[in-house]
Simulated assay, not measured.
Amino acid sequence: MAFILPEYRTPDFTAEPFKSAPAARFEAAPKAGVAPGDYHATSIYPEYFQVAPGDWRLPRESRMDCVVVLQSDGSLTVKEFRHIAAGELVAIGRRENCEDGIFVHSGAFGQPDTLSDKFAFRTQVSRETAFSADYDELYGLLDHERNHGFILWVLGPAVSFDRDARNAFTLLVRNGYVDGLLAGNALAAHDIEGALFNTALGQDLYTKRHVPLGHYKHLDAINRIRELGSIEAAIRIGMVSGGIMDAVTRAGVPYVLAGSIRDDGPLPEVIANVYAAQDRMRDLARRATTVIAMATQLHSIATGNMIPAYRVMPDDSVRPVYFYTVDMSEFAANKLADRGSLTARSILTNAQDFVVNLERGLLGK
């Protein structure tokens, strides 16, 4: 059965409490990077602001823990605190059901099914949860998104540690299921190590046998790329052939490698400045309609904080944004919800197995 996006429920602004709501208030930012005292902080949900009587406006792009700025043309922009300019008009008020001219639309796409029984087993996601239906739904979603959305992947290095997983993800790239990639130095370094030496952290990609002086391999890979000046240069001359970075580069898939305090090298493309990296990540996150984050807790949480529950499309329609987190650890998967990504769906499994199963389900039909 073909995947169908759920319908967006636009509020009835002619009914209460909208009819009696005051206009939203906006106050000037006292200085650059500082919001007025009673600022309104955004959530993951669609939020409407009454900028004039009867004129309720939805920001086209949002993310949690930011402020809403009223532009001179009447449009609304969601900004991180560090991007607030002195004197910009920032939305004021912390009541979310029209009392301050602000409405947080948490039921925009309907409410999840609720249990009729007050007592039931296995209501939380765990390693005992059945995920067959989740895979089937994901196959349909990704087939839809390949033609109508933007699929953003957030990858930890584990995906590059296994031959079959690495090959499977490469096939997903080549077949249009990858529109953007967020990762760190490790994913790219070990993927390139695999291309150069058929190892990851000194282990053979298939047999897992340690090779002689294997602990040098990822450093040798980084060093060779640094000598050439870029990953792209290594691909262009044929030094790096096959694997994830080769696939995304050849397909023109945009990627961001965000630096870490623990990085080796790092590779030339790694963005060392954390806020520059965050801005580049958000450039891709604001385009995403589906996100799949695998085996990288910090990158997953960071991306989750940038992803709202909705996306306003070019034709002004509003659709949900899907967020999947894949990890072996229940703690890591549930951490996203703890940090505010309440709509994230978890699949608890080995990241390599997930990629292989996904590729077979999508391409092995």
Rank of each mutant, 00 (worst) to 15 (best):
R287D: 11
D263Y: 15
A277S: 15
A295I: 03
D315R: 00
N305K: 14
P268I: 03
M306H: 04
G252L: 13
G252F: 02
V274R: 13
A251F: 10
A258T: 03
R250Y: 01
G252P: 12
A251V: 07
M281R: 13
D283R: 07
A285W: 02
R319K: 11
I307S: 01
H299M: 13
G252N: 12
F323V: 04
M313C: 07
Q297Y: 06
L267G: 13
P314Q: 10
I292Q: 08
V326N: 01
P254C: 14
R286M: 09
A302L: 13
Y322T: 07
E269D: 15
A309V: 00
R280C: 02
I307F: 02
L257H: 09
L267S: 10
G265T: 11
N273S: 15
I292P: 05
Q297R: 14
N305G: 14
M294D: 04
P320D: 06
D279A: 10
V318P: 05
I261P: 06
M313H: 08
Y324S: 00
A288C: 04
A276C: 02
R280H: 02
V326S: 01
T289I: 01
L257D: 02
T325K: 11
A293K: 01
R286V: 06
T296Q: 09
L257E: 07
N305T: 04
R286G: 00
T290V: 12
G252E: 05
T296Y: 11
D327S: 00
S317K: 01
M281S: 01
L298A: 12
A293Y: 10
Y322L: 04
Q297D: 02
Q297T: 14
T289E: 08
I261M: 15
Y310H: 15
P266I: 09
P268S: 06
V312P: 08
P266K: 02
P254T: 12
M281T: 03
R262L: 10
D327Q: 01
Y322D: 03
A302K: 10
P254Q: 10
I271G: 03
P266L: 10
P268D: 08
E269H: 11
A309K: 12
V291D: 14
V274F: 13
D279K: 07
A272M: 11
G304W: 12
T296E: 06
Q278Y: 09
V321L: 13
I301H: 04
D283A: 11
R319Y: 04
D283P: 01
L267E: 04
R286P: 03
S260F: 10
D279T: 12
R262Y: 11
S317F: 02
T303L: 15
A258L: 15
R319D: 00
V274L: 13
A277M: 02
P266E: 08
A285M: 04
